[in-house]
């Protein structure tokens, strides 16, 4: 089976001078296309570190990460930016919208960094409006983040993650700041995206959220402690 992403015995060390923090101590996981994975584990077990590596925001200290068939160690910084732009959509716990921009402008941001810097076309605009409708923000497109609720902000972030039609969606505790009914709505959107064929890798502490994924990975002290189907 062709893999969307693959980590092979990766380690991530943080050299703090006096001590070396080993956030990841040899993790190997395969992510086939169309996978929907929930990464679980105690605080400090290395979930976010793994997700950042998967998102090509960082490089492993040891081991290899292969995305789109290419090993990250052989890819230049600029090309990693291009990979983040084209192949990956990020969703963060704290939404991370740009405060001075409207909803539309926030969703547009990844379009500005496309290869060759094409300007935003009428087709792009139509696409943005469709995404807004899909996440249920059709009437809020001219608002700014501070005028929106947490759930609405996270919908903007999802629309933004989708604007370049990426294969992989990475979400770090996407519902961590939300109440349970909003959580359910966000999870429904993610499930629909997975049903469309996108690979979704999500970090969560909530069993209720994790059980909506196809499989779960449990981390402990920088290694994968267990893998399986909920409640595995």
């Amino acid at each position: 089976m062709k893999l969307a992403a693959q980590v092979i015995d990766i380690q991530k060390h943080y050299d703090l001078g006096s001590v070396v923090v080993k956030a990841l101590r040899g993790v190997s996981v395969d992510f086939p296309h169309g996978d929907f994975v929930a990464i679980m584990g105690a605080s400090g077990s290395g979930k976010s570190t793994l997700l950042n590596l998967l998102g090509a925001l960082d490089r492993p200290t040891h081991g290899e990460y292969i995305i789109g068939g290419r090993p990250v160690s052989s890819i230049s910084d600029d090309d990693l930016s291009a990979i983040r732009n084209e192949m990956i959509g990020f969703i963060f716990q704290s939404y991370n919208l740009i405060p001075q921009y409207t909803v539309i402008e926030n969703i547009e941001v990844p379009l500005h960094y496309r290869a060759g810097y094409p300007s935003i076309s009428a087709k792009d605009r139509k696409h943005i409006m469709e995404l807004g409708d899909m996440v249920g923000l059709g009437d809020r497109m001219d608002h700014r983040p501070y005028q929106l609720s947490g759930g609405q902000q996270q919908r903007v972030a999802i629309a933004r993650a989708l604007v370049n039609n990426p294969q992989i969606i990475l979400a770090d505790e996407p519902t961590g700041n939300l109440d349970s009914s909003t959580e359910a709505e966000i999870m429904e959107i993610l499930c629909n995206l997975n049903a469309e064929g996108r690979t979704i890798i999500m970090v969560t502490h909530e069993n209720s959220v994790a059980k909506m994924a196809k499989r779960q990975i449990f981390m402990k002290d920088g290694i994968v402690a267990g893998e399986g189907f909920f409640p595995g």
Binding site: D78, S81, N85, N96, P110, Y113
Partner: peptide
């Protein structure tokens, strides 16, 4: 700084 981080995560190169 945060805005810079967001832009980098969304695909901005250093040059951008």
């Amino acid at each position: 700084t945060r805005e810079i981080g967001i832009r980098r995560a969304l695909g901005a190169r250093r040059r951008d």
